[in-house]
Design a protein around this nucleic acid. Structure first.
Length: 492
RNA sequence: GCUGCCAUCGUCUAGCGGUUUAGGACAUCGCCCUCUCAAGGCGGAGAUCACGGGUUCAAAUCCCGUUGGCAGCACCA
């Protein structure tokens, strides 16, 4: 059995977006599942838009997502290298096949300008005909060619499409799809600049790199018959194709800036975990029979198959992603979350936030807020009151719990007495503190909330936070007493 | 305009001709737990399976048509 080889072949013309990641992921999962190879190839033949920065973004994103490649940039010694199409072009890899096709009469030089071709297409469209180049340069004589060149025209190379019959695509996800050859036009396979176009370079490289399966977005379906024809012309067997449905924005339109983050790295900045993004993306366009939602990477690798990929498009739902991220964080140990958090601070250049924080206290604070963390970026806000010198009081909290007509008298008494008594509290464990607080309510004949809430606000400045007595225990007696005293003198 | 792809709760999906009063998940609502916020538990609401024709004893499931959405139609990939 031939080794499975798949590739992810992004063009470095912008950020790596959600759809691209899903394509990369499914290829990666497929390769892993089959014990095959996953190849990363950079399709940088768009001279105008390809950028070095964009290549870097792709590489960084793939690394963060842990979609490691068996071959690709960095493996320049491989027999399949290089993995950048422009480098391959420089080595003359494509020229050979271009010459071959021209010699065989399967491709030809075309001197039409873009304007002329546009004109031809528009005319066809006006007549309700498929917009298609008419092949007028197919049979140029040598004199005509010389004449065109004398006019200073530069030639492109066009592929001669068969104009009868059908091209059949046997898609792993969609089954049989037929295309009428008469609708396919003579596509440009080499630009006037001498650089091959996508449809050509892609075929050559997939063949040369022994790619066995091409998994890509279904926006490529219209390209497939053209590519199949090129394979045929070169006498090559086609790889298997699997076209997955697209990921759309909330309004059903193609995912774009309007729908929130487009670049994966923005999700990293927000504090999403790579495994949450991976898990979520796996759920878009693929499912198991029991509709399982939460997967480890290993489970994904084990269970993935193209046969269970859906053919209808799906809408990207940020809320579900957020839920999944919380799920993943909750499944981690405090130590793991701490590590992840430190990495995130470093990545977002925010290390100074925790510079003077006691790391041991931070871990314990994280433990108290463990179930509440949805994003890594939530952590600072969730625990920062443990580390401040002076409590930052939330106005609403103070108004409601300390200063309202209803609460202020009892709050004052509770705080003054607590400051006094807690100073002498021997056992500062959460259990003992809870007993203390409950005893106080009985003694004063008031409700638990009338004791718990003022203390909470006094020591944290907020009405929300971890379990009160665990929070006090962690803060320690001196700090708690100090904060209560400070609160009393500030407000009463 | 031409060609192609797609169509089950708001969203992601299960379903491969009878076991379906269409199952699960997110979101939403209610209750429980509870010192707050979460998390968790329980429960509710939410889908005439886009529509119309067939085929069949039987269709969300097969076929045809219609409608709608999306994609492609570059010397972009």
């Amino acid at each position: 059995m031939k080794e499975v080889r798949v590739r992810f072949a992004p063009s470095p013309t912008g950020d790596l977006h959600i759809g691209g990641v899903r394509t990369a992921l499914f290829n990666w999962l497929f390769a892993k599942n089959k014990g095959g190879k996953f190849i990363l190839r950079i399709e940088d033949t768009d001279e105008a838009r390809s950028t070095e920065a964009s290549i870097q973004v792709i590489l960084d994103a793939m690394k963060w997502l842990q979609l490691d490649w068996n071959e690709g940039p960095g493996n320049e010694l491989s027999k399949y290298a290089p993995y950048y199409q422009m480098k391959r072009k420089e080595r003359g890899i494509y020229q050979k096949y271009l010459d071959d096709l021209i010699t065989k009469g399967l491709a030809y030089l075309c001197y039409c300008t873009s304007e002329e071709v546009d004109e031809i297409r528009k005319k066809a469209q006006a007549n309700k005909l498929p917009p298609k180049y008419d092949g007028r340069c197919r049979h140029l004589t040598t004199e005509q060619r010389l004449q065109k060149e004398k006019e200073g025209r530069k030639a492109v190379i066009r592929f001669k499409m068969p104009d009868t019959g059908v091209t059949v695509l046997d898609d792993l996800i969609r089954g049989r799809v037929e295309f009428d050859n008469s609708l396919l036009d003579d596509l440009v396979i080499m630009k006037a600049s001498g650089v091959p176009t996508y449809n050509f370079a892609c075929v050559i490289d997939d063949y040369l790199m022994d790619i066995t399966h091409v998994l890509r977005g279904d926006d490529h379906i219209p390209n497939t018959p053209r590519q199949i024809q090129i394979y045929n012309a070169l006498g090559w067997k086609t790889p298997e194709f699997a076209h997955m449905a697209m990921i759309l924005g909330s309004d059903g339109a193609r995912l774009s800036k309007r729908h929130g983050h487009t670049s994966v790295l923005e999700y990293r900045k927000e504090g999403y975990l790579q495994e949450a993004l991976i898990n979520y993306l796996a759920l878009l366009g693929w499912s198991t029979e029991d509709s399982q939602q939460i997967f480890t990477i290993e489970e994904l690798v084990e269970k993935f198959s193209t046969g269970r990929c859906g053919s209808s498009p799906s809408i990207f739902d940020p809320e579900k992603l957020l839920w999944l991220n919380g799920e993943k964080i909750r499944s981690k140990s405090v130590e793991q979350i701490y590590e992840l958090f430190v990495d995130w601070l470093e990545y977002t250049d925010n290390e100074k936030i925790i510079d003077d924080w006691d790391k041991d206290l931070l871990k314990k604070a994280i433990a108290l807020e463990h179930d509440k963390i949805k994003l890594l970026k939530d952590i600072p806000y969730l625990v920062d009151f443990f580390f401040v010198r002076e409590v930052v009081y939330n106005d609403e909290a103070v108004k409601k719990v300390l200063l309202s007509e209803k609460s202020k008298d009892t709050a004052k008494i509770v705080l003054i007495e607590s400051a006094e008594r807690l100073k002498n509290q021997q056992d500062f464990s959460s259990d003992a503190l809870e007993k203390y607080a409950r005893d106080l309510t009985t003694e004063k004949g008031i409700k638990t909330g009338q004791v718990f809430h003022p203390i909470r606000v006094a020591i944290s400045g907020r009405t929300q936070g971890p379990s009160l007595f665990h929070m006090m225990e962690l803060m320690g007696k001196d700090e708690v007493v100090k904060r209560i005293n400070a609160t009393v003198s500030k407000f009463f």
